[in-house]
Design a protein around this nucleic acid. Sequence first.
DNA 1: GTTTTATTGATAATAATTATCATTATCGGA
DNA 2: TCCGATAATGATAATTATTATCAATAAAAC
Lengths: 165, 165
Amino acid sequence: MTDLTLEERLEEAVKTLKVRGVRMTPQRYAILSYLLETRSHPTADEIYKALADRFPSMSVATVYNNLKLLKEAGLVRELTFGDQASRFDGQMHDHYHVTCIVCGRIDDFEYPPMRFIEKEAERLTGYATAEHRMEVYGICPACRKAQEEAKQMAMVTAKAAGNEH
Amino acid sequence: MTDLTLEERLEEAVKTLKVRGVRMTPQRYAILSYLLETRSHPTADEIYKALADRFPSMSVATVYNNLKLLKEAGLVRELTFGDQASRFDGQMHDHYHVTCIVCGRIDDFEYPPMRFIEKEAERLTGYATAEHRMEVYGICPACRKAQEEAKQMAMVTAKAAGNEH
DNA sequence: GTTTTATTGATAATAATTATCATTATCGGA
DNA sequence: TCCGATAATGATAATTATTATCAATAAAAC
């Protein structure tokens, strides 16, 4: 199993880009390494802000340009969520996501790719299927806890209101 | 199994809306019935254009307003695809979609809801999961045929070019 | 019918993303 | 090491889907 370090993955990525005739710039390198090391699935704007102190003059257009380029080179995946901003994932091994419907947090989870669903779609519709996307939605542990506490609070308040007469 | 006709489903939907205190207007009725009878997963703009001859003065905002309202009433589902326009689905029984990456066409296919993946995400991440979304991507039969023909054409042309000397 | 209030339609506002383009920087070769 | 071709950057305008605003209109309960 290939289990590379961050540095090795970065080196690989730079090589991949060079083969494609893509020049390496400080901004590009920073965006790439930021995406390879984080697991936070950042938006373009979050990346922009995260690098703002190191590249105060960097344009938000540069972030978008590079994200598109990295995506085309197969180094990054774009996760779209309706009209909200896209999120970007530098972890290119197959995995699925759970999204918190309260706070927007996204977590990874490992599960064998469900290729059977593509085959089934193929059989039923005549499409030549190539891939699938699957997102699970729920409430993350932190937000569950917050909701639990809010409920407790409401009960205490209700009880107090009931007693005051 | 409840297998209602279009008229019965419309009647049901109108009742559901009335319970929620939603008034019925000609525009709203037209949008609703359009969504219940089509299987084309139209965008807001497509609905707007489809009803333009019957409601020449209808605003595009009215279409959006009603789509949101119908969605909140559980009568319609919104399918989002990145930064492209959302598509709307009036078929509320559980089913999945295949999307053509060439022409954008969307087809339904029936498959038992994969609740196990929600349970697995729950176990692995501690989320309280509620639902999931799964989209298969591929090339529809029509576009496959078109690509096949284009390939044939290219071969013939190449052969002709090879012979001309 | 009157009245209340949800709805419509016109238009402005918003937000993410892409396009444009002059200026700058990379990198292979002289 | 310097040079030149050209790719990349950064500033800004443009685009597109969607939402907000609000005065005028129309449902529907009485």
